[in-house]
């Protein structure tokens, strides 16, 4: 554990709390892509199967359980509790274009041909692109509630902080995880456009609006 990874994880936690807070206070999941949230459940469940057979630390265990539980809770909020506020007609990204290639990549690039290892790889690849339906939705509507942009910023900060973590681990432990690093760089790259608008507009007190 190092400071970058720790704050990355905290940022990830924060993003989930911000999202749940947004849904509860506005009593609406408007502007949130259900597809992205489903992909996150798939990511956490396929990655954290090792909960069943390997122990890393209490920290690791609690975080994994929290990520699985909170992502399922968000699906419940969107599909049951605040269902009328969820508008599938603007959530039109084709997720099969993400899941299919990630499954193929996982079969090619993994750390061992065990079901759990392939699923772990799959979850890493899928996480890197899981935000795309959400960003696509944002692109389509051209604007977002400020709180939604804070959610996205915290989520983007999480993987961004993992990059200095990997650099740190390379020098301090000689540890390199090429699959996580490659996917992590892609994932962070997807946020660059968003970050640009977030820093130049939202943090200057303006509304998140994309140029027409």
């Amino acid at each position: 554990m190092n400071i970058f990874r720790f704050f990355g994880d905290i940022s990830h936690l924060a993003s989930i709390f911000i999202l749940i807070h947004k849904i509860h206070t506005s009593r609406s999941c408007r502007g949130i892509s259900f597809k992205t949230q489903v992909l996150y459940v798939a990511v956490f469940v396929t990655r954290y199967l090792d909960l069943l057979y390997s122990w890393v630390s209490l920290y690791n265990f609690v975080m994994k359980v929290f990520f699985i539980a909170s992502s399922c809770y968000i699906l419940y909020l969107m599909k049951v509790r605040f269902r009328p506020t969820n508008d599938p007609s603007i959530d039109t990204f084709r997720v099969e274009y993400l899941v299919g290639p990630c499954a193929v990549l996982a079969l090619i690039f993994n750390y061992g041909y065990a079901v759990t290892e392939v699923l772990w790889s799959f979850s890493i690849f899928l996480e890197s692109v899981a935000i795309l339906p959400q960003l696509f939705m944002l692109q389509r509507t051209g604007e977002a509630e400020t709180i939604t942009t804070h959610y996205l910023a915290a989520l983007g900060a999480y993987r961004t902080l993992y990059i200095p973590n990997w650099i740190y681990r390379y020098f301090s432990e000689g540890y390199v995880d090429p699959i996580a690093v490659t996917a992590g760089l892609v994932q962070t790259g997807l946020y660059l456009d968003f970050f640009y608008v977030y820093f130049t507009k939202v943090l200057q007190g303006q509304k998140f609006e994309l140029p027409a």
Binding site: R5, H12, N165
Partner: peptide
């Protein structure tokens, strides 16, 4: 190799 010690990152 990362998998030998398990995947310790979240």
């Amino acid at each position: 190799r990362p998998s030998e010690s398990g995947h310790d990152e979240l």
